[in-house]
Amino acid sequence: MRVNAITWLFQRITAAVLLVLLGVHLWLLYMNNTSEVISFAEAKARLMSAPYITLYVLLLLFGLFHALNGLYTVMVDMGIKPRKTAIGALLAVGLGLFGIGLISIFQFIM
């Protein structure tokens, strides 16, 4: 399979980007929260701006790719045989969650 080199490279690129994005995500949750329980209004106030929307869309996209490609790597390591089925299932989960995630992120700006 000739896509191995590309997915391997993307796994590294998303890893490097996630180090930053996930760092920001966690920093926001721990350092920028005043109340005990996060409310919709509070989250909306933070998420209204374009940079934050970009941050979370990228986090969703890169996080899902890194996670599901990582899972696929584990499967191949264990010698999974019908690989097409695995790829199909992971793609379906990834695309589904990306769709749901996108819609829910845009709830904040609607």
Partner: peptide
């Protein structure tokens, strides 16, 4: 070596 069971299995 660039096949699935080549270099990409090294972690």
């Amino acid at each position: 070596v660039g096949r699935s069971y080549g270099v990409w299995r090294c972690h």
